[in-house]
Nucleic acid binder design. Structure first.
Lengths: 213, 213
DNA sequence: ACAGCCACAGTTGTGCACAACTGTCTAGCT
DNA sequence: AGCTAGACAGTTGTGCACAACTGTGGCTGT
């Protein structure tokens, strides 16, 4: 990959993570000049990144005002969740990937990280692990457009959990999360990728229902 | 909407249509300078449009070479079709919209246009009608992310039909298309939005199977 | 005291000049 | 004749200066 495209990917992933981990809470004004200075470029390449984030619905640029992190529209997010549920199930239907030893090692590593999280619960560590685990779940399908679409929608809803957790039971959520990973490990050990996808769908659904109103 | 954002939308839709109608066949080199001159702007706003088209997978910019219209990767397109089938069915499941008199007038207008197409078949007119009809089909769901996702994927595959039609029977395709619209009119007249979505899904599937190999 | 207007600081949007890069063609050497 | 190196034309990428726009705060007139 060319260095320009590589830097674009890097900055995009970095800013997206900052937004989704609430380092930049909704309403934050992102200064093009400050970010350009931080990353050692001029405004031009940085604006390319912000434009992509705007297309993805994570920020909104207003002439004369600034580039603001979008706030979480719960009516829209409910629609995104509805769609994500079906896409999660599709992971097990569209070109499900065979369970390889490498993949088993991955899921076991996730279980280990989940156990560590349960031992010392932390919202940010939870969110980071959840993001990595979601990406792992998508790797179970060989359908690239499905992966990209599901990822895009995931990042739209990723902030909701972090904003809700203060009104939820963190330790309980960690235990449930670890339980999901262990169930998935069992399904994958049986070579049943579709079952793993359905477990994911079920837990997304239950997670939504547990959220405070 | 601000005039800058409005122009961005306009140019994006225009270039996307040119690509999907094969005015710019795969491999065409899009000159930033020439396009900027045509639309009466400088390269800067135009590059914003090309960047979005690149994110959507319709063009590819290469430093020192040019911005090329992507060629149609059939392996990837097969995956897109798989996903589109399921999304088409979801239109009838996620927030299906009630059938209003205005919507009935719309579908009747489409049937009329379909009859005119059958009377004098033309690939380009077919493609344009198909695009408008696809957009109408998406309006049957109130789920905005589903609409955007399905539209995005549609434009990825839109070029395939136009490249295949020389090896297919145009008159037959027009008749089948008109038949689909009439079936949909019947379903909507019965107030059955979900049935209309399933008809769409069935015809997308059959269209894929009719394509020459 | 209050309302309205104006100047100003701060931000994104635009245009332009130049840097970086690629493929081609030509001149020169072997 | 063939091959290599270098100049060159053409394209996208970057940086910078300025235009366009917005909100605010203060000033002025009533």
């Amino acid at each position: 990959m060319s260095s320009a495209a590589a830097r674009h990917q890097r900055l995009h992933a970095e800013l997206r993570q900052r937004i989704c981990l609430l380092d930049y809470p909704p309403g934050t004004k992102l200064s093009e000049e400050a970010l350009a200075a931080e990353f050692g470029t001029s405004r031009t390449p940085l604006r390319r990144v912000l434009a992509r984030l705007e297309d993805e619905g994570l920020v909104e640029s207003r002439h004369g005002i600034g580039t603001l992190v979008t706030d979480v529209d719960m009516a829209l997010m409910a629609q995104v969740y509805d769609l994500r549920l079906h896409l999660a199930a599709l992971v097990g239907q569209l070109d499900p990937q065979p369970v390889t030893p490498a993949r088993m090692a991955e899921i076991r590593a996730f279980v280990t990280r989940g156990e560590a999280l349960l031992a010392s619960p932390d919202p940010r560590v939870f969110a980071e692990l959840n993001s990595a685990y979601h990406d792992f779940g998508l790797s179970l399908t060989g359908n690239a457009p499905l992966r990209e679409t599901a990822a895009r929608l995931y990042y739209l809803t990723a902030r909701i959990w972090l904003t809700s957790i203060p009104r939820m039971d963190l330790a309980s959520e960690c235990a449930i999360f670890l339980g999901e990973m262990r169930e998935t490990e069992t399904a994958l050990a049986a070579g049943d990728t579709a079952a793993a996808a359905l477990i994911r769908r079920a837990h997304i659904s239950m997670s939504v229902h547990r959220m405070p109103r």
